[in-house]
């Protein structure tokens, strides 16, 4: 089955991104395809490379990056939501005159059209929020 996942909340504050990650892992382990994980609202904060969580706890951002790499996942952070919350890649840095970028490994910033397209092309959309 082809899945699309939407994550509406940021790391640590809510369990949503943990649940999404565990679901994604289980789906991939079962041989399903995840065509996109779309991060919206505060979910875009899963895509910053500036977190330093305590060593004895899970590293949510890195976990997504690693899963993304292992399975060639499309981890997309919504551009409008990212601009509001300060998640920046090279392109956004130039376009908006910022002096730094912080997008985490394996994530990319793109438009809401990617969320709609994921809904159209996938067989199941699963939303994780609060």
């Amino acid at each position: 089955m082809k899945f699309a996942i939407q994550v509406n909340e940021g790391p640590y504050q809510h369990q949503a991104t943990d649940s999404a990650y565990q679901f994604a892992k289980a789906a991939l382990d079962a041989g399903h395809e995840i065509m996109r994980v779309f991060f919206y609202h505060d979910g875009v904060n899963n895509g910053t490379n500036l977190t330093t969580p305590p060593q004895d706890d899970r590293n949510i951002v890195n976990r997504w990056s690693e899963l993304g790499k292992a399975h060639d996942l499309d981890l997309v952070v919504c551009v409008a939501a990212a601009q509001r919350r300060g998640i920046v890649d090279e392109g956004e840095m130039q376009r908006n005159g910022k002096d730094a970028q912080n997008i985490a490994d394996g994530f990319r910033i793109s438009g809401l059209g990617q969320l709609i397209e994921a809904g159209i092309q996938s067989e199941r959309l699963v939303v994780f929020g609060d």
Binding site: Y40, G111, L112, G113, L115, I116, G119, I120
Partner: peptide, 10 residues
């Protein structure tokens, strides 16, 4: 989302 989605004719 609704506004962007409107362009996709669903």
């Amino acid at each position: 989302v609704v506004l962007i989605g409107a362009a996709f004719d669903q």
